[in-house]
Design a binder for these strands. Structure first.
Lengths: 222, 222, 222, 222
DNA sequence: TATGAATGAGTGTTCATTCAT
DNA sequence: AATGAATGAACACTCATTCAT
């Protein structure tokens, strides 16, 4: 299960900081929290280092640079969320239920500052383009996974599918701005509402031609 | 008309004199572009200044600080988008069509780096809490306006309405990450797709109890 | 009486700032207050300008530079205190009483932030040496005046006289650090105490040789 | 021994290794010189840094801020001068001789730019009030020590004692303005003259009532 | 005389990074 | 693996000063 298990459960053990050497894992985890809290730019190497009781310079024994750390964090985060959603849909057959499970997992994962994937919803760093490209490539990996759940829902044109995916992902990622872990609103509630609101999609696409015809006049005037 | 509400009275007619003076307006516009491109943290006063052919220090003749600039930019951006969506729905009666017009305008406005509202979709700065509070308050102004268009769609509980609003706003704001002005995909296309996908919402809420009953088994297991 | 009369009495009239043009005099006065309060370095042209309801740039119609302003302020301050002490001793015959009057006036003058001489007790600015030389030369003018009151007290060698003068001037100037105008301790009280404590000077110089003989052993070992 | 109380334990013996490392000590010393020469405001971090062959930013490895540096310097200076005067009076019994020894030491200490205490005679920085309060509190520590030497001289009322102390301290601190180490005038000469001039104080206070009676007429007219 | 806009040098400070120990 | 010291470039911001209007 990789990073998942480290995230929250074993954190208690970190109190013995002087003994436990700072591993790449614990640094990544701390970095995830700091990046999630302050963004890529505002987060400093000092912040991250001090979160694992290290001096800034010592981080460089584990990561070649801040950018390298970001890159690895991003990759680990994507790995993590992909694994999480795949586990979440195991045994779920109905495609809409699958989508709802994915959404719930996405929100849970992303909203948990202790988990690496939280950075997925942050503005990308104003970093060298080559780094940004890599991050985008990582994100695309998840997008592809997500796209599969979309196409399970019905017959869409590529454009329809793409827009639906972006619509849902936007809603989900934006949730980091307002969703609070431990609040009275659960991730499952949000996911349920989001998916329910889209439930008609399949119907809305073709059958509603008549409705759309009604609008045509205005459309053509644009 | 554009950025109405920011100007300072009669100065407008004077700028044309010899060389375009770097007014607060042009600074705000440049700042919007820079902030939109690089985020609040990564954007430097130097960037903004050089974008309007000023030395960094000269900016402080117009704005007391970077934070003050951000605040004013944010306020102007909210003013701008509120005005824009209100104009967009004038004469449109059908509530779904109104929503679509709002979405289209939101995307157009936000995706245009030259327009102030682009900052709305950016991560908030890791700034003094008092500033962040102000920015959130500004955003809330727009949220209220948006909420009105939601409640026009039908009868919702407060929670249903809130989640629907957040769902849509998330989709829209996230669009700054992938929507490109001038691309082959128009804002109106995106808005149309987004709204169409939600068209069933009203139906999905209550009438579809039967559909949901189908799912109940899993629901109760949660 | 020159600047004296302007200092405090007529300040009420400054409320009509828009009408009364800022004169060199009122600028000097404001500068005296600001310099006295914050020191030469920490005081800014902006501070001074805003104290007379001017913009920084406008000051340069009255003074060529900050240094020029300092210089003139210093000169005016020295003029002022010289005039003040000379008036204070008029009609006073006893040399010790004259000294006391001088001390009282010195403290009063210097402790009053509204009066120009307050700057006399401030650290000299870290300014171009040529300016510093001028300021020192101004100070010397007052020192000469003061020296005359010292030599009236009795027969001193030049060194004795010089040290006594520096001793007294030090006490007086240092008073700006702790003496508060309007407090329960009056300048006259302080002056009286200072002078009284020195009253024996004349006697102490020669007659006390025997006393000093007692100390000789240690003295010679130095 | 010198700057005892500032060091950080066992680091002392290590500095001699290759090239003198810019320790807190040497920075403090350099800062003392720079502050003494130019005042708190005019002295820049760059001045101090370059005096110990460091880059400006490197100072922040040792001190959190300019203010923190000032504060520590001030404290060290007060520690230093207190220790110095206390050592100077060891074995000296006559209270007037003790005072003279204190004065000599005060002048020597304060006039030596290399020693930290030189800053004691400088205008306080126009710094945040909390810092100024701390500095004043430090100065008060020395004032208390000094006050003890005053009260040894005879029976004074609190006010008499306070004024006498302020009179002497003023003379001494002012000496930084004119006293030059290495000049033909020695600190011991100055201290001797200062104390001698005050030798009559005890007599002047009570016995001289007749003299003061003579003055009464004028006194009451004030 | 006064203003508002701009300058350019300089200020304290931060930060990712390096490297000898 | 970790530290402590140092770097150098950059940053937000200040300030005395200039000048067209």
């Amino acid at each position: 299960m990789g990073l998942v298990g480290i995230s929250r459960g074993t954190r208690a053990g970190r109190g013995i900081s002087k003994k436990t050497p700072a591993t790449r894992q614990s640094i990544l985890l701390a970095a995830a929290r700091v990046f999630a809290a302050r963004g890529y730019e505002a987060a400093t190497i000092r912040d991250i280092a001090s979160a694992v009781d290290l001096l800034p310079g010592s981080l460089y024994h584990h990561f070649a640079s801040k950018d390298a750390l970001i890159e690895e964090l991003y990759r680990a985060g994507i790995d993590h969320i992909i694994k999480a959603v795949q586990e979440a849909v195991e045994g779920v057959d109905d495609p809409w239920e699958r989508l709802e499970a994915v959404c719930r997992t996405h929100i849970e994962t992303i909203a948990d500052g202790g988990l690496l994937a939280s950075v997925l919803s942050k503005d990308l760093p104003a970093a060298p383009p080559e780094l940004v490209e890599k991050l985008v490539a990582e994100r695309d990996r998840y997008d592809k996974v997500f796209a599969a759940f979309i196409s399970d829902l019905g017959k869409f044109t590529p454009l329809e599918a793409r827009l639906l995916r972006l619509q849902i992902l936007g809603s989900l990622n934006w949730a980091t701005r307002w969703f609070r872990v431990g609040g009275r609103l659960k991730a499952s509630d949000v996911a349920h509402a989001f998916v329910r609101n889209l439930r008609g999609v399949g119907d809305n696409l073709k059958p509603h031609v008549e409705k759309r015809a009604r609008v045509k006049a205005r459309d053509s005037s644009r």
